[in-house]
């Protein structure tokens, strides 16, 4: 399946934040690969490091307090983490674009939508005003904003939530990037609007052959969108699989719990949804052992001492667990 070229290759990324209370171990050795035109989803609960991972790749972590301790992020064989700020400016928005969670705060309230969309066109493609304006109208049309000629002169507060996110998408797509990073783009939206945005991204991805990294905490959104899913917990990848395998044959206890907490239309309705006991891990403590062990129903002694590696458990399927959930006993 993955004969396509690797476009983004992330190797052992570690990001920390040095704050007054100590050091936050936000990302602890994340590796992932993204192929051309492929969509992957990064799933995990709030604070598991999924956004920080992608912000690190984009060089958008405020330093200080942030620090990228180690790792490489190869985009078309160039390590983004080693590039200078000036070189990164040519990557951001042009090669790799990003859409953020809350389009109300992510758009500048005092600049028109049209201006904000035209900025990457001017900066990266050296378009003049007239050409940029023409392209903005096309882009707004493409993302389904009615009457783009007039609406481009509106300010963000004059747009509805869904329209703002469409405008954000138009902005990200302006320079036809090869990679789109969508950081929880539907979280702040109504469910019906969510579906529209997902549908829109799917359509544009297919039309432009764009690789998409979709960050979300909503496993429901992922199903119809991504080809592969990466489950993160406490700044680590705990499971990685093709989307169907992950839903039908989850191998990590955390993924199992996530799926058990998800309402499904094909299951009996009278079954209670299961919540995961305990609280997410304290990232102020350096990771030791399996980070999920304190909340895991299968955890045994080894889990608390030794951090499991990300091991292949099936074809194109890896999990970070000492316990074989299929056979109901520890590995080896």
């Amino acid at each position: 399946m993955n004969r396509r070229q690797v476009i983004l290759d992330l190797k052992d990324l570690r990001t920390r934040f040095h704050i007054a209370e100590g050091t936050v171990y936000a990302v602890n050795g994340v590796s992932l690969t993204l192929h051309e035109c492929e969509t992957i989803a990064i799933v995990g609960e709030s604070g598991c490091g999924k956004s920080v991972t992608m912000l690190s790749v984009m060089g958008l972590i405020p330093v200080p307090p942030g620090e990228i301790v180690s790792g490489q992020a190869f985009y078309r064989n160039r390590d983004l983490l080693a590039l200078s700020e000036a070189e990164m400016e040519h990557i951001r928005g042009k090669e790799i674009a990003m859409v953020f969670q809350d389009p109300m705060t992510a758009l500048n309230p005092v600049l028109t939508i049209g201006r904000q969309i035209s900025e990457p066109l001017r900066v990266h493609l050296n378009m003049d005003r007239a050409a940029a304006q023409q392209r903005v109208i096309e882009l707004l049309e493409q993302v389904g904003i009615p009457d783009p000629k007039n609406r481009m002169n509106d300010y963000p507060h004059q747009f509805s939530g869904g329209m703002r996110q469409r405008a954000m998408l138009a902005m990200a797509l302006a320079c036809a990037p090869s990679v789109l990073i969508a950081d929880e783009p539907t979280t702040a939206l109504d469910v019906t609007i969510q579906a529209q945005i997902v549908e829109l991204v799917t359509r544009l991805r297919d039309a432009l052959c764009m690789a998409v990294i979709w960050i979300t905490h909503d496993l429901g959104v992922v199903a119809g969108l991504a080809e592969r899913v990466i489950v993160m917990y406490a700044g680590m990848v705990v499971e990685e699989a093709n989307v169907d395998d992950l839903y039908d044959d989850p191998r990590h206890p955390y993924t199992l719990s996530l799926l058990a907490a998800l309402p499904r239309i094909d299951r009996r309705r009278d079954r209670r949804l299961k919540s995961i006991p305990g609280a997410p891990p304290n990232l102020l403590v350096a990771p030791h052992g399996c980070p999920f062990a304190p909340r895991c129903e299968f955890a045994f002694d080894r889990c608390r001492i030794e951090t499991p590696p990300l091991l292949p458990v099936a074809i194109e399927h890896r999990a970070r667990c000492w316990y074989d959930v299929v056979n109901g006993r520890p590995f080896e």
Partner: peptide, 26 residues
């Protein structure tokens, strides 16, 4: 520190444009 400054940065805008237009106008 606002999100729209991060967005501007994510668009690859040069620093002066981020500081003197996106941030200063606010």
């Amino acid at each position: 520190g606002q999100d729209y400054v991060r967005t501007a940065k994510a668009k690859g805008l040069p620093r002066p444009e981020i500081v003197y237009i996106h941030a200063l106008k606010n």
